[in-house]
Design a binder for these strands. Sequence first.
DNA 1: CGGGAGTTTGAGGCAGCTCAAGCACCGTGG
DNA 2: CCACGGTGCTTGAGCTGCCTCAAACTCCCG
Lengths: 263, 263
Amino acid sequence: MLADTGLQRTSRLWSTLKEVCSLLRIPDDASYGQHDTLFQHVQFKAGQRIHTIGQPFDMLYVVNSGFLKTVAIDVFGNEQVLSFPMKGDLFGVDGIHGKRYESEAVALSNCDVILLPFKKFTSIGKVHPELETAIYSVMSRELIREQAMVSMLGSLSAEARVARFLVNLSERFAEMGYSGRQFNLRMTRHEIGSYLGLTLETVSRTLSAFNEIGLITVDQRAIELKDFSALRTLRRLPPSRGRAKQLAANALAASPEGQVTAA
Amino acid sequence: MLADTGLQRTSRLWSTLKEVCSLLRIPDDASYGQHDTLFQHVQFKAGQRIHTIGQPFDMLYVVNSGFLKTVAIDVFGNEQVLSFPMKGDLFGVDGIHGKRYESEAVALSNCDVILLPFKKFTSIGKVHPELETAIYSVMSRELIREQAMVSMLGSLSAEARVARFLVNLSERFAEMGYSGRQFNLRMTRHEIGSYLGLTLETVSRTLSAFNEIGLITVDQRAIELKDFSALRTLRRLPPSRGRAKQLAANALAASPEGQVTAA
DNA sequence: CGGGAGTTTGAGGCAGCTCAAGCACCGTGG
DNA sequence: CCACGGTGCTTGAGCTGCCTCAAACTCCCG
């Protein structure tokens, strides 16, 4: 089953339905307490795969701690990062339809992941109508997330994408009880670029540019957000000194022999 | 069956569960026949809105005939086309999570749409376990579709996106029993561009380029696919349009009547 | 201390965008 | 019937944001 994809020794930790729901930010229901079903935790080390493309689907997964990425591989063999699941996120949903996972999930750090055997989970849903609705709700949430990604990739500039990425990360960290101002990236520039539809160089340059104009400070993986609201609303960077010079040079080059513009 | 793909004026007013499932391409189940619940059809004229952003959610929708678009509107008021639902497609799913629709759905042609009151629909799911699984499956399918979009927007060139768009459309038309070779686009260049993360000019130019090198013929909304497999595997057009023309000319020069000089 | 993976930065090129102009199509009203 | 206006489509020309290629630097780990 999971053995070949790097299953670590099974932890002795188990979670109740109530705990799982709380993790997933699902509205609680008193009746869940009655259920004595326990869900198993599994530990993964950085780099290990939780599931791979084409592997038969039988589980959903919820992140209890740690950081992961999910990756699609297109027809031409290119990897594309689809999401960075972290505490409270559900993944594996894309396996439901075709009975096989359509993406792969990789641990970016040591992780603690809760297994939700799909059949078992949905059968509990029949006993607890609230849970069933909640499952639909979580899947809907995932869909909305993907729609937001599509929207972002379809219309935002590189700077705006990176800015939103930082803001989203910050909010996630804050939700998890960490600082939303200072944090360490868990992924490489390459992975961020893949996620945002940019090259790693563009990501690096954009972060450096944000750093230069005081929106953030960045040192390798360490990030500090300095101007949250500017990041939030950023659409396009103001002309840099370099670009300003360039524009000024162009303007000067044009004016001497050019016509005088009427006021 | 519902195979009457004809005009809306004679369309049926109600469908059985069995018919809805068949439309959705959900594995059938004999027990559905027992259910006497009927689902209402509603007709929309081109341009009419089925639901708008922020409107309270209570229904899912299935397209019985006609063509629609779903649109997100981002923070800055920009429209972004998210999908082009057509016969057999489900939409409205993004409303489940927040109890309000996150996107709006607009009819591109006259449409016949089946209403699925969410509460009623899921409560039937409790009686028919197969149906419940099927609902999960359809939602999972939608998620996979969005993932594919993200993947496309993140990594493919303009030409590849347009080519895939045509191929996907073609396959959908074929599934619906129409010709997959010749069809009319139901959406504007602007809408296609928004969907693919391109400008309308780029869409237009790309279609013209495909036309010039013989992959398709295009005249306004009328499309004919000439080289399906080339469209399928197309990654990037030869370097520039100029050179593309050149190459096309060279290729044609090899065949008898192929003497073509660059314009 | 050496090697590999990740990051930064520069220089230059090109795909796709912007701006602009003209054409095609279609419904409406004279 | 045609004139007319509005919407959508095509095509051109120029620009630029992001990519590509390349080199050097940092950090980590054995």
